[in-house]
């Protein structure tokens, strides 16, 4: 090993901590020191991931199962890479290959998987609360990789890590989360974590895509994009599912882009030097203009993908550290 890499490894081991809970289901479950510790650890993993040798066997001998009831190539790949770089064995399961399509309940699936003694279960499901349900029935640690419209906590960690690296801090930043807030687990996880870290959060959406009583979340609520992003440090755009256009929640794609799509003209209302984020995959020309998304001076979107692997390594390492030498 080179000197540099041993330095990196030392820093990771120094920052490694034992996650206080068995599962990571919601960013709302974290307290501030835990959140800060995850970001510090994630930051250390970024350096590891930029080396030629990206491995550090903190999860050696451990088994991680990716259980994705909803397709998501990139989140699944991100978790898989994170786990493999930490030396875990990874099994990917998706609805096509699992028996859930044959009428088996989530609980039965969980019980069957549990008998195989995985240490970590990464779950994505289209229903809110699915990860928490699964967590009740397994001995290993469950990581929520997105449950319906509820939470996607590792996304919030990677977003905060991206902001922290871009601005040097999260505290005091003004972040506008814009678009389909109603259906967005990314928004809910980010609201919880960003507020915990001391950021000011705004929500911007057409009224049909704003949760009722969102003003009680401790956020400022806007139905006008320009007003909502005025003076913001970060503009976080959300993905609008195509089936929610075409008259369901908004009349058409072009109308949505006209009022809520982010282009340079609207971005000019944000603070000079403001950065743009998007959890991906993007609908170019619907919620975001390519001109903005692809400008490296403005966009943090590629950074987010990179931070995704590091943040997930931090989460997996901390959850595993909790296990110690058990099992």
């Amino acid at each position: 090993m080179t000197a540099a890499s041993s330095e990196i490894e030392d820093r990771i081991r120094e920052r490694l901590f034992s996650f206080p809970k068995q599962h990571f289901l919601a960013s709302g479950d974290l307290n501030r020191p835990e959140a800060e510790a995850l970001l510090e650890l994630g930051d250390a993993f970024v350096a590891l991931n930029r080396q030629k040798d990206k491995t550090l066997p903190l999860l050696a001998g451990r088994t991680l199962v990716n259980l994705f009831f909803e397709n998501s190539t990139r989140t699944q790949a991100s978790f898989e890479l994170a786990a493999k770089r930490l030396g875990a064995d990874v099994v990917n399961m998706s609805p096509q290959t699992s028996s859930i399509a044959k009428g088996e309940t989530l609980i039965d699936t969980a019980a069957a998987l549990n008998a195989m003694q995985p240490d970590l279960l990464v779950v994505r499901h289209a229903s809110s609360g699915a990860a928490a349900l699964l967590a009740q029935k397994v001995d290993g640690s469950v990581v929520n990789a997105g449950d319906g419209q509820h939470e996607h906590p590792t996304q919030a960690v990677l977003d905060a890590l991206s902001m922290k690296r871009a601005f040097g801090r999260v505290e005091g930043l003004t972040v506008a989360i814009c678009g389909d807030v109603l259906h967005s687990r990314v928004a809910r996880s980010n609201v919880a974590l960003l507020q915990l870290l001391g950021a000011r959060v705004r929500l911007v959406a057409p009224n049909t895509l704003m949760p009722s009583e969102a003003h009680l979340w401790g956020c400022e609520v806007f139905d006008d994009l320009k007003a909502g992003i005025e003076g913001c440090d970060v503009v976080m755009m959300l993905r609008l599912q195509l089936e929610r256009m075409q008259g369901g929640f908004v009349p058409s794609q072009r109308e949505y882009f006209r009022f809520y799509g982010l282009d340079r003209e609207k971005l000019a209302y944000a603070k000079p030097g403001a950065r743009v984020m998007h959890p991906g995959p993007m609908n170019r020309g619907v919620e975001i203009d390519s001109d903005v998304a692809d400008d490296p001076q403005i966009s943090l979107i590629q950074t987010q993908v990179e931070m995704g692997v590091a943040a997930r390594m931090a989460v997996l390492a901390a959850l595993t550290a909790r296990l110690g030498n058990a099992r």
Binding site: S128, H150, R188, P211, S212, L216, W217
Partner: peptide, 15 residues
């Protein structure tokens, strides 16, 4: 039921 609780938890709700 639509409101703060369902909104925060992301549960599809009815007013």
């Amino acid at each position: 039921t639509a409101g703060e609780f369902a909104g925060r938890f992301g549960i599809p709700s009815v007013p």
